[in-house]
């Protein structure tokens, strides 16, 4: 069984982790096109490359980010999400045209 290094708990069996999908930037849901939204929701890259993914260490409920090569399945590094997400995210009000 594969092992992964959790930034909080150290090297653990992969069975302790839950995959949370790729880290993706959400387009503005209130202004993007339908296509851009569908791309965000339904499509993932499937090439041989390094992907940045969410992983959860289930016993401690800790989410972190891992960079993994999809060809070798090697996990190159793992780190706390605050490295990528360090400021409060706000959402703009929806466009109200046609909703009068």
């Amino acid at each position: 069984m594969k092992m992964m290094n959790c930034p909080l708990n150290g090297l653990r069996n992969i069975s302790e982790f839950v995959h949370g999908g790729e880290v993706k930037e959400m387009p503005d849901p209130n202004s993007c096109s339908d296509d851009a939204w569908a791309e965000y929701v339904f499509y993932t890259e499937n090439g041989i490359s390094v992907v940045t993914e969410w992983w959860l260490h289930a016993p401690s409920g800790y989410w972190f980010i891992a960079e993994r090569h999809t060809g070798s399945d090697e996990i190159l590094k793992t780190y706390d999400p605050s490295v990528l997400f360090n400021k409060r995210v706000e959402f703009s009000a929806p466009v109200t045209e046609g909703m009068a």
């Binding site: 708990n9 653990r12 069996n13 069975s15 302790e16 260490h57 289930a58 016993p59 401690s60």
Partner: peptide, 12 residues
């Protein structure tokens, strides 16, 4: 401390 899985349930 180890936060891990014991007998398939989470434990500290």
């Amino acid at each position: 401390i180890a936060q891990t899985s014991v007998a398939r349930i989470n434990a500290i």
